[in-house]
Design a protein around this nucleic acid. Sequence first.
RNA 1: GGGCCGCUAGCUCAAUCGGCAGAGCAACAGCCUUUUAAGCUGCAGGUUCAGGGUUCGAUUCCCUGGCGGCUCACCA
Length: 535
Amino acid sequence: MKFNDRWADTRQCVRFFYTRGLQRIDGAIFFDAVKLPPARCAWDSTMEFIDTLGDLERERFLKVQRLRERGIEPYPPRTARTHTIAAVRALDERGEDPGVVTLVGRMTANRWTGKITFADLRDGTGRIQLFLRQDNLGAETYKHFLKDYDLGDFAQATGSLFKTKTGELSVQVTELVMLAKAVAPMPEKFHGLTDKETRYRQRYLDLMTNEETRGVFRARQRIVTAMRAYLDRNDFIEVETPVLQALYGGALAKPFITYHNELERNLYLRIADELYLKRLLVGMFERVYEISKDFRNEGVDATHLPEFTMMECYQAFGDLSDMIKVVEDLFVECATAAGGALQITYGEHQVDLTPPFARVAMRDAILEKTAIDIYADDTFDALKARIAEKNLRVEPQMNWGKLVEKLFGAYVEPTLIEPTFVVDFPTEISPFAKKKPGDPRVTERFEIYVAGAEYGNAFTELNDPADQWQRFMEQQGNRARGDAEAQQMDQDYVQALKHGMPPTGGLGMGIDRLTMLLTNQHSIRDVVLYPQLRT
RNA sequence: GGGCCGCUAGCUCAAUCGGCAGAGCAACAGCCUUUUAAGCUGCAGGUUCAGGGUUCGAUUCCCUGGCGGCUCACCA
């Protein structure tokens, strides 16, 4: 512990306040710690708190105590805001003068020139300049401002609007109130906070410092709102399905396992909403959707997090072509909400999101890029050879569908820059999609690709209970051969299908990745407020 | 999981070949009544991620560990 003069000063100040505050004003007690009561009191715990502070924080905490000594509460319970900063600016732009206004916000910059200080005040809606002049505030208040206010403090400023000689809208402050003293200093104002770990772990610092970060998350909110509005408008009903599931399913992925004490059994965190949502169609809801977190116990990188946000929607009496329209509409709605334009920049790519989007069959796309016909007889070994060229891992249990998927991912996916629907996915990797009429090797399924990445996945949903049962059985076989992502048999789901599910189109879209695309962010961690980091 | 890179003051970053650990911002003591990353003077601020090793001497070289980033693999 450092016992420098500043620190001793803070101690004295704190002790002074609390002895007085606890009605123990007594010269003997005041400076004689031995006579303080042995029981823990506010003074003790405040002392312990001070011991946890760094030097700069102690300096600021000293100001907290100084304010209290003078009868000023540094954390008052209420404010008297009359306008947001954005509202004041809007009035000004219309040429209206609101008269005396009271604004609240965080002080983010000070430029002082003697008996005048220009300060920046920022609230959730914008930034405005405060003009603090000794002549307006009075010498004592002005000195109090200089001594006790720091960058980062929340303050309330009252005054009238005027333009400085450089033409900047400012508040001529006549009254200043501390709303919340910041004990810890803000990150540096010019470079801001760049350390990525700190930005993710202490997101509040990132948000208070970096305008771009706030912009990304506001855009994300607009994207989700636009998506919901579109689905609501088109008679999709928003529902909630279980996160904790006795049997997980609906996607090919590894789950998180948790344990229920009273039930004495394992439960799984859902990997998809699909099977529960489609049961609702059996129950005769015609259009349902859910926007929620899914969990997959897999790798963490720039496009994968263990928890991520998914939108799934299902439309009874619809099919793949209806989902194509939903996807195209959603891209238009969300892009408009996020940035206003359908022509977007993503990294080095310029992309036009104006429908209709291109369509290509998986076979044709692979044929074009690799000269391999996945339908030819010798396909299996040829696929393996080409995949080996790419240094991709070929597991012995991989079937034709998995090899096709690998090849597609390596040779085709990165080349799909303009929005493209890829159709006709292998049946083996599409256990919930209806087979294509006349060609049981592939399904009525598409994925939408933009800028080399996938943003959505849709099927004409499989509603034949016998076929579904067989697909589950095949998955069981895959599992037996070591495929950790294979589906478990879901008898109850098959039972539901036995009661009849209407012909249905279904779609899943990753909200995080869509937000990445529309905000030009290249790590999923930058579009999730609190991303899981390694540890 | 593999490879590469990084971790220095509250923040952003320096430190030559292994030779006294520095600057800007923030803070502190002052000056300055229209500033825009304000300016000026002064002062203070460090477990150089942790532990070990080599060395007269380690921020620097070596080893181990921690945390992170990028990338490859895995994966929706």
